[in-house]
């Protein structure tokens, strides 16, 4: 009797001890894992914050009224600006958006309304195309616009950026159109309205905030791209407004001035980088706010 009790007590302490040991081991493993994950976050944040902080501080140092209103000057001569690149980016990206967004949203409507082999193929190809290297798209625009015309031009740059924006516009547009309640579509059909009219007057109108969000995202992606412009717009030191001429762009200024060994050109590069950063962030934040507002509205 007492022997059994003794062994039971032994077992109990044994179990308690091993449980305590296991608990301690698991606690230590948990603390180590959490520390490693936290370390990962710190390592990830250091370069990202450094990029933003340095771009802001060095960029603001380069900013002035002249910076936004003057043409670039050669290295060593102060007072140069980027007004031609600012206007150039606006023209190139604006024209690209005009070319890409309507087509993109019609295809988005097609993907949202239709199922079948064609729709699935288009969706897959568009998804893959969204990951194409931007420089290969630049070469494509070079081959189909610059080569036949015989000169570099803003138009060819717009073609390149339009091809680049198309997949983003299509997928973001499809997401936006799919948030429109199906009842609306069915109600239109039940009234005997033509499908094209239903799409135009009910679906597109209801999806409009989402489509604006999609447009902003596509434009913000395109405006920062420099690689497709290297062989198309090619950059310019003068104020070009004709689509048939080489044109300056913000992203090209960051690259061409940034790789120069002259401090004042590097200053211009930082200032232009900050300008780009501000534009891209404004586009992203406003598209985010719009999306949140829309979600509240549909709810």
């Amino acid at each position: 009797m007492s022997v059994v009790a003794a062994s039971q007590v032994d077992r109990r302490t044994l179990i308690r001890q091993s449980a305590r040991k296991s608990h301690r081991r698991r606690q230590i493993a948990g603390v180590v894992a959490a520390a490693l994950c936290g370390l990962g976050l710190c390592i990830a944040l250091v370069p990202l914050i450094s990029i933003v902080a340095l771009t802001v501080s060095k960029g603001i140092a380069a900013w002035s009224v002249d910076f936004f209103t003057r043409l670039p000057t050669p290295a060593g001569i102060p007072g140069g600006g980027i007004v031609n690149a600012l206007v150039g980016s606006l023209i190139i990206d604006g024209l690209a958006a005009v070319m890409a967004l309507p087509v993109g949203f019609i295809v988005a409507l097609f993907l949202a309304e239709h199922e079948g082999r064609l729709a699935n193929t288009v969706r897959f190809v568009v998804d893959v195309a969204a990951g194409l290297p931007a420089i290969t798209i630049g070469l494509f625009a070079y081959a189909i616009v610059v080569l036949p015309e015989g000169h570099f031009s803003a138009l060819s740059a717009s073609v390149a950026l339009a091809v680049l924006m198309l997949p983003i516009a299509i997928r973001a547009g499809e997401t936006a159109i799919r948030t429109v309640p199906q009842d609306l579509w069915e109600a239109g059909i039940a009234l005997g309205i033509r499908r094209a009219r239903v799409a135009r007057s009910l679906v597109i109108v209801s999806a409009l905030p989402g489509l604006v969000t999609a447009s902003l995202l596509a434009i913000s992606r395109a405006i920062g791209e420099a690689a497709p412009l290297l062989f198309t717009a090619i950059g310019s030191q003068v104020f070009a407004t004709s689509l048939g001429q080489p044109m300056a762009s913000l992203s090209l200024v960051v690259y061409f001035d940034g790789i120069q060994p002259y401090p004042d050109l590097q200053r211009t590069a930082w200032g232009t980088a900050l300008t780009l950063l501000v534009i891209v962030m404004l586009l992203n934040v406003s598209s985010r706010l719009l999306a949140r507002r829309m979600r509240r509205f549909t709810r």
Binding site: S50, I51, V52, L54, T55, S220, R221, I223, G224, E225, A226, A227, S251, V254, Y255, G258, I259, Q266, A269, W270, A273, L276, L277, V280, M281, N284
Partner: peptide, 14 residues
Amino acid sequence: AVPSVVYGLWGFLV
């Protein structure tokens, strides 16, 4: 969303 050319500038100069 930061443009890749900004990453490049930071990498080269900093």
